[in-house]
Write a protein that binds this DNA or RNA. Structure first.
Lengths: 217, 217
DNA sequence: TTAGTAATTGACCTTTTGGTCAGTAAAGCT
DNA sequence: AGCTTTACTGACCAAAAGGTCAATTACTAA
């Protein structure tokens, strides 16, 4: 909702440059971690003077925070508007599917978060507390309601969510291991379906549900 | 197999100091990652002059490699001696259980590996190729045999293994997130059982098995 | 004892780090 | 056009990084 009456050349170039920098930073931070990536690397990658980065983002911390903020901004936790009346199998199947697609196609963001959490989530703590925790609480309530209505097995809903997160994210965060073990160079286009199928089979059947026939989006 | 006829004071102190250094390095690397931990931090933590560390381990890389090697040395992948004649449910249940115990009680090593893999496993690549891959291949064969004998559902055995690894390791590698979301400060003694139960329920049932009655070790 | 060897480390080196700042360029406004 | 203000950046800085080395201190074996 930026009132674009006057395109203001300053704003335009600033936004363009910031995007350039953030893109480079996102890539480098996710590849090398916070300490592994340096400001000069980001500058070189973004083809921008280092001082310019500092001018925009105040400090390395500031840049890192901005990168995280931007990811969060267009990070959809999914499972929105789920209600007790929805069909658990369909909802969970689609959720797993979308998570696998994300993991395989956009592993960078997942890895950035992973390295953040590995270090104790210094920057994400607040986000987890104020956003993720309530979000989870809400989904947990729906899951619990489904269980109470005997629509699915009674398992700890928190651990069920963790199971979905872990199994799907694994293919992004531990991609190097997965590929090495399976002796592949990269995921191919059949992998998404294959992975989704395996995970969905195990988890859905594991909580007493059936994989829905088809669910085109 | 060190021929300890003459306890040789030099060797004794060297080994003592190396252990001191490796312990400190293991802790710091797992906490801060390769780039986050510095030689001087390790020196301070181990209460040893920095030059001494370099004397023993040649370089930071050398130290890091030694840390990894030591972990690998007493790292048991589990699932040893499994054969087609074993009961899938018992074997997998015990495997899951032991993995959860490790994750909750010794998360440091898991995290060190995780950050290694996140960065593309520069040091573990060779290990994965020469050790993990054949190990996995062998377990995959057993799993496949169980499936062929209709002892369990037919799912991709690789992805089944990844599912077990991911769900269990998650509680070590992403401990910060888990605790924040569940609003806890640390795992308590009921958590191991709770986690094991949830994961085992989902995975075992998910592949058509039942949780074994009891399995004391 | 003592000569010879290995272990140890304080001082030092280079490079890189995140960060500052004063000066210059570029809009924006009237 | 000319004046003000903001955007930018090359040159610089102190701190910290990993690493070297010469000098000193153990040990060991004869």
């Amino acid at each position: 909702m930026t009132t674009q009456i006057k395109p203001n050349k300053k704003e335009v170039t600033r936004e363009k440059n910031q995007k350039l920098i953030l893109d480079a930073a996102e890539q480098l931070f996710s590849q090398l971690g916070y300490d592994g990536a340096s400001m000069s690397m980001v500058a070189k990658e973004a083809q921008v003077p280092k001082a310019n980065i500092l001018y925009y983002f105040k400090s390395k911390d500031g840049l890192y925070e901005s990168v995280i903020d931007r990811i969060i901004a267009n990070w959809n936790l999914g499972l929105d508007n789920v209600t007790i009346n929805d069909d658990p199998a369909t909802v969970l199947y689609n959720y797993i599917k979308s998570k696998v697609i994300l993991a395989v196609n956009q592993p960078m963001q997942s890895r950035l978060f992973a390295s953040e959490i590995l270090r104790g989530a210094p920057y994400l703590q607040n986000y987890f507390r104020t956003n993720t925790r309530p979000w989870v609480k809400q989904k947990v309530d729906v899951l619990q309601a489904w269980m109470d209505a005997d629509k699915m097995d009674k398992v700890d809903p928190y651990h069920l969510l963790f199971t979905i997160w872990s199994t799907t994210q694994y293919y992004a965060d531990f991609q190097a291991e997965v590929l090495l073990v399976m002796n592949k160079l990269e995921y191919d286009k059949t992998d998404v379906a294959q992975i989704t199928q395996s995970i969905a089979h195990i988890i859905l059947k594991g909580i007493g549900l059936k994989i829905p026939e088809q669910s085109e989006t």
